[in-house]
Amino acid sequence: MENGDRLRIQLESAPRLYQASNRSFQFWKILALPLLLFIAIPLVALFAHVSITDLLKNLNQRQVIEAISLSLVTSFTATFITLIFGTPVAYLLAQRHSRTHRLVDTLIDLPLVLPPSVAGVALLMAFGRNGMIGGWLSAVGIEIPFTMTAVIMAQVFIASPFYVKAASIGFASIDPELKQAASLDGAGNWRIFREIDLPLSRMALLSGSVMTWARALGEFGATIIFAGNFPGRTQTMPLAIYMGFEIDMEVALTLSVILIGLSFLTLIIVKGILHRRIEADLEFRST
C-alpha cells in the first residue's frame, strides 16, 4: 500500500537524516536541562509531600471518593459524546479541499487557546438561565447550570478538540484511491466509512479519545463558573483540589497525586503503545 509505505519511510528516515554528533548532542542536553527540571521538580515535590499511608487514608474520605467518581463518570460521558458528535466534524475537517475547512478548523482550535474561564462565562451566556438558549430551555423547565450536565458540557467544550484534531489527521492519512476503488465496486458512503475509514484510522481515533478524556478529567475553569461547586454533584477532582487547597491540604495533595498519576498513565498509553501500534500497522499494511 503506497500510502503506508510513504508514511513509514517518513517515520523511519526522519531521525536518520541528520545524526547529530555526540558532542553537539551533549551541548543540547545541557541547554534542555533548565526547562526539563522546571517541569519535573514541582511534580517530584508534590509526590515527596505525600506518604503512601496518608494517600490511602485520604482516599477513604467521602469528599475524595465523591470527587473521583464524579470525575470518572463525567469525563467518560464527555468522551463518549465527543466520539459521537466529534467524528463527523473530524471527517469534515479531513476533506481539506472543502471551502469551509479553514473556518471549521479555526473554530475547533478556539477552545484549545481560550482560557477555560472564558469558556465558562460563554457557556453561562448561552446556556445559563437567562442565556441565549438557556432562557428558552428554562421556559420549558430545563435548567442546566449547577448540574452534572453542566459539568459534562464544560468538559466537552474544552476537551473535544483534542479528539477532533487527532481523528481528522487519521482520516486524512487514508489513501483516497482506496475509497475510490471501493466506491467503484459499489460501496456506499456509510460502508466506505465503516469498512475503510474507521478501521484504518482506529489508532488515531483511540489516541485522540484518550487525550480528550484526560483533558476532560482535568477541566477546572469552565466547570467552576458554569457548573458551580457542589460536592457529589459538580465538584470534580480539580475543583476539590482547589477548594481543598484552602482548607484541607491533605485532600488537595491526595487528589493531585492521583490526577498526575492518571495523566502520566494516559500519556504513556498514547505515546508508547498506541504509537508503536500505528507503526506496526503501517509496517503490516506496507508488506
Binding site: F146, G228, N229, T234
Partner: peptide, 14 residues
C-alpha cells in the same frame, strides 16, 4: 443549595 462558591463575589455575580 445548588453551589458552594469559592468566594463571595462569585455568589453575587451568579
Amino acid at each position: 443549595v445548588v453551589s458552594f462558591e469559592e468566594n463571595v463575589k462569585a455568589v453575587y455575580t451568579k
